[in-house]
Nucleic acid binder design. Sequence first.
RNA 1: GGCUCCGUAGCCAAGUGGCUAAGGCAGCGGAUUGCAAAUCCGCCAUCGUCGGUUCGACUCCGACCGGAGCCUCCA
Length: 351
Amino acid sequence: MQGEGGSTADRKRSAADFALWKKAKDGEPSWESPWGPGRPGWHIECSAMSEAILGNHFDIHGGGLDLVFPHHENEIAQSESLHGCPMASYWMHNGLMQASGASGKVGGRPRGEDDGDAASIEAQTAAKISKSTGAEPFQQLLARHEPEAIRMLLLSTHYRSPIHFGEEPLAESARALEAFRRLFARSERISGTSFYGLPCRSRREGDAEIAAAGDEAAALRTRFLAAMDDDFNTAVAIASLFDYVRVVNKYIDQHQLEAKKPEAELATLAALMLTLRELTGVLGLFLKPPKADGGADEAIVAGLMELVIEIRANARKAKDFATADLVRDRLGSLSIVLEDRADGTGWSRKA
RNA sequence: GGCUCCGUAGCCAAGUGGCUAAGGCAGCGGAUUGCAAAUCCGCCAUCGUCGGUUCGACUCCGACCGGAGCCUCCA
């Protein structure tokens, strides 16, 4: 075991000693004890909470890579000497998030902020209570980016790797999500069934019913599950999901499901989507439809769009492409994208 | 300074001692489209540098360069 050094090292009997109980500083919450008012040391808090809630031994203890020493080592020293058994079966340490262009952890306190005095306590509570220098608080990131994009970015690397947060990576993740959402919308137009309403079935149910989705889908599902079983290799799991989307799109293309709707092929499409629901559900992705951002005017906008599209359709029918393109271009500058598909014209807001 | 981890295409990011080095974003070509968009097909890397081990290394070892974390009774 490594010893905590620094200014306190000479006050310890052993370099590996650490504080179990700390004397209360002015203004801090405290409890009476044989040594005067004080509070539990940091490490004791976690040992006590995990014992109370999870018992003497539990499966997985997680935490950031920066907590391996001294915190987790000390937790183990305390809990295992008390309980006489391993504290946790697995310790999983995630890589830290770094803000692009800044050094430090996302969620940490801004660099240079003063430490330890009462004035900074509020600032600490507002962000993460941490001595580490940090970039912007996570909340600010959440305010600018949809949570799903952040989840996607997190999932795109191995959990043990450090990850850079920033506007560009987040925007890229958001773009990647759109490929999935376009497929959800496409499938819904064909089947009338919303992806978001599908049940997230269990792995066992999936095993039993995967055959209906075909060999390619089955192989990709196997790849996905094997990746997740291999220390949560979410990057590979997601890669197999992108391949899966391609398989479904190809299936729809090849069987022209948008034009005709044969029973058998529709059943296969349903099975394909059900498996996609199962797998994306494992990652916690696409659990809810994206928020419609139009507010109260959404119905009016939808009605207007229907009208504009109908007028444009008439222009196209009359081969008045100048008018049709004008409409599409002008809508484009309003961040509305028109798609002329075989089964009609659709519109969406640019991400 | 000590310990640990990392360095793969324009960007992000998996992975392996020898088999086509995943996937995403961007880009390019094609199919499709009135034109686009969407979708599909195809193209786009020799794996930080230098040595070593090996029949063979991007994958193992060493040095160096670059980045990150810890070594501060901050939780």
